[in-house]
Write a protein that binds this DNA or RNA. Structure first.
Lengths: 205, 205
DNA sequence: ACCTCACATGTACCTTGGGACATGTACTTT
DNA sequence: AAAGTACATGTCCCAAGGTACATGTGAGGT
């Protein structure tokens, strides 16, 4: 077949491999996958069902997956093929990892100096609470896995590893937000005007 | 003016506010911004110059920025306007934060069970080294700021906060990778075949 | 018998992101 | 004087993401 998957040099695409990975656990329909994406990968990698169905078609055309069964209301479950399994294994071992973070909270922090100190404090408090909360949820989830609530299969162990990442990252962000609240709000500014910027580099043509 | 920025309900767009934020520090050209994006926000928020120029045009049309000066080789420096400054402040204080992580390393971990134990160990070792390395770089950068190498302006303090986030997150990821290496590689498998999956739902057409 | 809700799959459109390609200018080195 | 490099701005196209819209089915309640 001739389907072009990776533009020329072989860049990776996430949704595709996410779907292959989930299908490697066993057959599932687009609907199932949409839910599992939301439940399991949700906070880490969002995916909407239209994209999922579209991607499934493409994967099917490429021979990476095939229809496993037809169910009640038009339900179509897909099964991963040897080709698909080989592809996700290749991706996991050979394709280099994209390490960019893309965390909006962090991006925003570059511009904290533009915020009123009070607004910033309130913002950081909310952020801290939020991150601490999901960190706690993640910890609870990790504990359940450690108790063996979900068995000891390879999938479960991998989930456990992923959950550990979530725990640590969210906790790190919660700690960070807490720490950030202790950073003094820069020099006292001019007094009458709270806007410290926008003048700079006085005009020449 | 009538330019529609945020599709209906007011969703945020990152590049736009990233540019506004950088311009709030003072006038800069597209070229400058492309470099600053790469140097400062690089690992957190990648942006290519074509997008930057395009976005600058749009921001200019919207009255958020305006041409500040013309330089040597067609160089056009932009300056943020009051409107633009108000917009980024509004974004910072009013717009709710998107907390999704989108970290490929973590996404991959969901599928670690598909990897050969040896490959996985090698992978985790590389990941650990990589994360530890940038964490160290970030720490060095933080130390330089703490020594006051870059002054004590609001911008610098915000940068310091952002760097702290990078430090903590990368360190968390390094620790996570190290921890993950100690997780036993699931049940011993069948012995003759190292591929534990892909059979499920055994074949009929 | 009807209604409603969860299940299930898709199309259409618009925006965003990324890479390739194109163009031209000033400075610096040989 | 020529050549190379860093500066500087952009167009074009395709892939990917996100939202809205459209459609139909089966199970369970009233």
């Amino acid at each position: 077949m001739d389907v072009r998957f990776t533009s020329e040099d072989g860049e990776a695409v996430s949704l595709r491999h996410g779907l292959l990975g989930l299908l490697a656990e066993g057959p599932a329909s687009g609907y199932d996958l949409a839910r599992r994406f939301e439940e399991h990968l949700g906070p880490v990698w969002p995916a909407q069902h239209p994209k999922i169905y579209a991607e499934l078609s493409r994967l099917s055309d490429a021979g990476m997956i095939e229809v496993d069964s037809h169910g009640p209301r038009g339900r179509k479950a897909y099964r991963i093929t040897e080709t698909g399994l080989a592809e996700i294994r290749r991706w996991l071992t050979e394709e280099k990892v994209d390490h960019t973070l893309r965390i909006e909270s962090v991006l925003r922090s570059f511009f904290f100096w533009l915020m009123e100190p009070d607004d910033l404090q309130a913002h950081l408090r909310r952020e801290q609470e939020f991150f601490a909360e999901i960190a706690e949820v993640a910890r609870g989830y990790a504990a359940a896995k450690d108790r063996g609530d979900f068995g000891t299969s390879g999938q479960t162990r991998s989930m456990r590893v992923a959950v550990e990442a979530a725990t640590r990252i969210y906790q790190a962000l919660a700690d960070w937000a807490e720490w950030a609240r202790t950073v003094p709000p820069a020099v006292p500014a001019t007094g009458d005007d709270a806007a410290p910027a926008a003048r700079a580099a006085d005009g020449e043509t």
